[in-house]
Amino acid sequence: MTAKDIHLPYFDLLLAQLEQENAKLELAFGRHVHWGYWSEPPQGVVSPKDFAQAAENLSKEIYFAANTKNNQRILDVGCGFGGTVASLNENFSGMELIGLNIDIRQLLRAQEKIKARPGNVIYFEAADACALPFPDQSFDVVLAVECIFHFAQRSQFFAEVWRVLKPGGRFAFSDFVSQDFFSPLMAFSSGWPFSRGFFGHCNLQYTLTQYRSLAQAMGFKERMEKDITENTLPTYAFLRALGKELRIKDPSAKLETWIAEWASRLGLLRYRVFSFEKLKSG
């Protein structure tokens, strides 16, 4: 994939609204652009401030799953506007933090908004997640917050993560994971609306069994797997309310969100957090 292949209408909308100084969008999505995590999911529609905190919580769930510590070199793949990098910068010291994204527009905003604290180093790199422009064994931790479903090949991405991780390094990510019996029906997620719809290309048919098989084949050892679907469900009510307020006309926006929500509520699609370790003997 190249920058020319990027088709992300929801980022087009976000960037346009942020440029127009939409205060609600700035609060909700100006830092993180992913689902929220609530330890005790509330009822009803949450406020933009509550959603922003929930999105921050989700990033923390993932980087704590990677056993993040001070004095590490960390790569955040699919970094969006740099929210996870910003959170790491604020909560750890002695860090070298690299955010990577194929969309230069997102990186330009991240560079503008995020400044390294004393003792930390931050920079952003434009590149394809399946062809990481870094030397072998150069990172302690690799993170991928809710973005792998956009990538051309999960197997190639895993191979690249394995290559750039140091022995004993951790790889943590979140993804929408299909149940084994439902995966064949999710094959439509590689076609419209998920191929060229509001959220761009999305492949939601990968299963827990497939992830574990892929990790084992690469030489990763599973350290943690957590189903947090119920903790993320308030995201959908927030997105519906926001969509009405913004008068989003793209029919695929409603359809894609509806499919993801009800597949999740029915137990067919699960939101999971994973942590794998690159074995030192690998």
Results as ranks from 00 to 15, higher is better:
Arg105Ser: 08
Ala116Ser: 09
Phe139Val: 00
Gly82Thr: 09
Gln137Met: 14
Ala116Tyr: 12
Ala144Ser: 15
Asn91Arg: 14
Gln137Leu: 07
Gly94Met: 02
Cys130His: 07
Ser138Gln: 04
Ala86Asn: 13
Ala126Val: 13
Ile114Glu: 07
Leu132Gly: 07
Pro135Asp: 02
Phe92Arg: 11
Pro118Glu: 10
Ala159Gln: 13
Gly169Cys: 05
Gln137Ser: 15
Gln156Glu: 14
Ile114Ser: 02
Arg170Cys: 05
Trp162Met: 11
Ala110Met: 04
Gly94Phe: 03
Ala86Gln: 14
Thr84Leu: 06
Ala152Ser: 12
Gly94Asn: 05
Ile98Gly: 06
Val85Ile: 12
Ala116Leu: 11
Gly99Trp: 02
Phe139Ile: 01
Phe124Ile: 00
Gln156Ser: 12
Ala110Thr: 10
Leu165Ala: 03
Lys115Gln: 06
Ile148Lys: 05
Glu125Asp: 04
Glu96Val: 05
Val145Trp: 09
Gln111Asn: 13
Arg117Ala: 12
Ala131Lys: 14
Phe124Ser: 01
Val145Asp: 12
Pro135Phe: 00
Thr84Cys: 07
Pro135Cys: 01
Glu160Arg: 00
Ile104Asn: 09
Gln153Gly: 14
Ile122Trp: 14
Arg163Trp: 00
Glu125Phe: 01
Glu146Asn: 06
Leu108Tyr: 12
Arg117Ser: 11
His150Gln: 05
Arg117Trp: 10
Val141Met: 12
Ile148Met: 12
Leu100Arg: 10
Ile148Glu: 03
Arg170Met: 12
Arg163Pro: 05
Ser138Glu: 00
Ala144Pro: 13
Asp103Glu: 06
Ala110Gln: 03
Ile114Phe: 04
Ser87Ala: 15
Gly169Tyr: 06
Phe139Ala: 02
Phe158His: 08
Gly82Leu: 00
Lys115Thr: 02
Asp103Lys: 02
Phe149Glu: 13
Ile104Gln: 10
Ile114Cys: 01
Gly82Tyr: 01
Gln156Leu: 11
